[in-house]
Computed example of a mutant assay.
Amino acid sequence: MEMKDMTEPKELTVQEIMLHLTKEITLPDNTVDQLITGSPDQVVSGIVVAFMPTQHVIEQAIQLGANLIIAHESPFYNHHSATDWLENDSVYTYKRNLIDQAGIAIFRCHDIIHRFEPDGITDGLIQELGWTTYLSQRTTESDLVTFTEGITVLAIAQQLKSCLGIDYVRIAGNPEIVCRRAAVLVGFRGNGHVTIPLLQNEQVDIIIAGEGFEWETPEYIRDAVQQGRSKALIMVGHAESEAPGMRILAENLDKSIPGVKVTFVKEEPVFKVL
């Protein structure tokens, strides 16, 4: 979704940026998208866009002189950004004090970008992989791609690692099978109630997902393979699947908001394989 330009350059407030993001979006009543820290009235000195407002991202925002972070996920380790259970936690307190002392506003952009047409997070991953020409169908929670010539699970895994700049993915199933139809699901959409109907009804050979419960889709794939079926799963990682969409959001904001520097800050993968 391309974002329309704002008016001529002027001092913009956090509230104006929030309205710019939401002006064509209808959010659900229980949306998690909110201003988590800071004031809607503060003038924006710069914007950092990130998948998650980690300690590193906040430190980078301070170095860049940016006082607004637009993040897909919450800074405080739970979906609804609740903090009452963290009041005596030293990690939370340190991070919160840093945010407050630097005067940083954090705006959650989760439901908004998922309601872009097409879904801004899923489309970001498809673009990052160079698979736009392979798109054959879009559903609410997934993009289906068709590889006319077929491609092995191993080759898909190597492409994911190369395009996303990551060291590893996790595979269930035979890495040598040839796939012609794949379902791409970002974030936490890799659970069985979403993936199994795709495998059943859409002739999907492989599920490519961010993450999901390990006792659902992976175990379904295990049983399918044991039964002699050519099915596979690649788990990419939650952040790794969703960060490309936020990077594209940053690029679009940089073009559409005059006079404010917009920077995408990428985090390192949270896990290491030893």
Rank of each mutant, 00 (worst) to 15 (best):
E2A: 08
T7W: 05
V14S: 03
L19C: 09
H20M: 10
I25D: 00
P28E: 11
G38S: 03
P40V: 11
P40T: 08
V43F: 01
I47W: 06
M52G: 02
V57S: 00
V57T: 09
I58H: 04
Q60N: 10
A61G: 05
L64E: 14
L64M: 08
G65R: 05
L68E: 05
I69Q: 06
F76P: 05
N78C: 10
D89I: 08
S90Y: 12
N97P: 02
L98Y: 07
A102F: 02
G103C: 07
D111H: 05
I112D: 03
I112P: 00
Q127N: 11
L129S: 05
T140G: 08
L144Q: 09
F147Y: 08
E149K: 12
I151H: 05
K161P: 02
G165C: 06
I166P: 08
N174Y: 04
I177D: 06
L185F: 02
G190I: 03
N191L: 01
N191M: 07
H193A: 14
Q200V: 05
Q200D: 12
I206K: 00
I207Q: 04
I208V: 13
G212E: 03
R222I: 09
A224E: 08
S230N: 14
S230L: 13
K231Q: 15
E242P: 04
E242A: 01
D254G: 13
I257Q: 01
T263R: 07
E268F: 12
